Simulated scan of single mutants.
Amino acid sequence: LLPRVAPGGPGRLDPVGVTLLGAGILAVMLPLVLAESGGLTKAWWLFPAGALVLVAFARWERRVARRGGQPLLEPGLLTETRGYATGAGLAALYFVGFSGVWLVFALFFQNGLGYSPLMSGLAVTPFAVGSAVAAAVAGRLVERLGRLLTVWGLVAVMVGLGATALLLWLAPSDLAAWLAAPALLLGGLGSGCVISPNITMTLRDVPVRMAGAAGGALQTGQRLGGAVGTAALPGLFYLTLNATHDDYHEAVALSVGTGVAAMLCALTVAVRDWHRDRHGGDGNCPPETSHSHTHAGQN
């Protein structure tokens, strides 16, 4: 059913690459998913094993590309396309913190404070409102401000979620959600200036022939970061509960704070990219990048 993508015949799939990537991700993820039942201590060896498999995946992809095949992940995206590796890495790190905190908040409000699922969702709605508003504005500012927009967005997210963690830790239970609402709103405003603008800047210099692979790899990185965060932060939440004899306030503060630490890593990447752009870039902008492709990434 696949269309012919080359005059010589149908496009070739990369089953070895798919297998290696899937096995590597599974090995890295499984101890995190099983953290509550001792996965981090019993299955720790899967981390280095998964890293080795992912190294084998990278080597295989380079081999397929050298032989003129169609690799699952085009190596040239990371080595020849200005800003792509930076943007993909930033997205993966950001989603570790961004995706993981929402399950932690749900566990805190519902199990810790006795909120209904509806009330738990309403408690974090300020973040969603701020994100929606900021995303609409950021789409018009990204071409003018560039990476600086995501730098300030990441700072706002970190300040907002960091303040939320402190408030939920120290505030009385009956006031926690109300006091945290302004901080969540600030975090949402920052998030709206990170995700969509980062996609635009990551894809703006991608050659048109690599556009499909670039979009797919970027989404895969985001989903991988989200999966790690969704497994790791709730796992840390439960470990803290066990260590503190069900202190939900300390558990949510430590878990959300860890998510903020992942975002700090993303901020470091963004600052380096912004500094590079200020000093003229690295000169690797591919000649076949088109202005229309920039708008495609923006959409």
Rank of each mutant, 00 (worst) to 15 (best):
G215H: 02
V256T: 11
V256S: 08
V53L: 15
V151C: 07
T230S: 14
S116E: 06
T164Y: 10
Q222P: 09
L103R: 04
S37M: 02
L239G: 07
G50H: 05
G187Q: 02
A176M: 05
T230A: 13
V208T: 13
E80K: 15
T230D: 04
I195Y: 02
M210Y: 14
P71G: 15
V206C: 04
P286L: 12
F237Q: 02
C285F: 13
L118E: 05
V101W: 02
V124K: 04
Q222N: 14
D174A: 10
S292F: 10
L166N: 09
D247G: 11
L141Y: 05
A128H: 05
P117D: 08
R204S: 09
A123Y: 03
I199S: 12
G153R: 00
G281D: 10
A180F: 00
G192P: 00
V157I: 13
A266W: 06
E36G: 06
L113K: 01
Y248K: 10
A183L: 08
L149A: 01
G114E: 06
G146M: 13
R209C: 06
A35T: 11
L93Y: 04
L46N: 08
H275C: 06
H291A: 11
A232M: 13
C265D: 01
V28K: 04
A243H: 08
T125A: 15
Y238T: 14
R66I: 07
V157N: 07
L167H: 01
A270M: 06
A132K: 01
G121S: 09
A231F: 05
P197D: 03
W152P: 00
D273A: 11
P286K: 07
F237L: 03
A181Y: 03
A56S: 14
P75F: 14
V133L: 15
F108K: 06
T41W: 09
T79R: 12
A123E: 01
L179Y: 07
A262V: 02
P126V: 05
G283Y: 11
H249D: 02
A58S: 14
V33N: 07
G259Q: 03
G50V: 15
L189Y: 11
I25K: 14
M210Q: 15
D205C: 03
G22S: 15
K42E: 10
P117M: 04
A58T: 13
P287Q: 11
G112E: 02
N111S: 10
S131F: 09
L93R: 03
L32V: 08
I195R: 00
V129F: 10
G50K: 04
S255G: 08
A51P: 15
L218S: 00
V194S: 01
A106M: 09
G146V: 14
G112L: 01
G235M: 06
A156N: 02
T150D: 00
L233I: 07
G221W: 01
G8L: 08
M210T: 07
L73A: 15
Y115N: 04
Y115E: 06
A56H: 12
F109P: 00
L175C: 02
V55H: 09
L77I: 12
N284G: 12
V194N: 01
R59P: 01
C285P: 00
R278H: 04
T268R: 06
G83T: 05
T41D: 14
L241M: 10
A183M: 09
T125Q: 12
A266T: 02
F237P: 00
R82I: 05
L175H: 09
G216R: 13
P234W: 03
A171L: 09
F57M: 13
T244P: 11
L203V: 04
L13W: 15
T19Q: 05
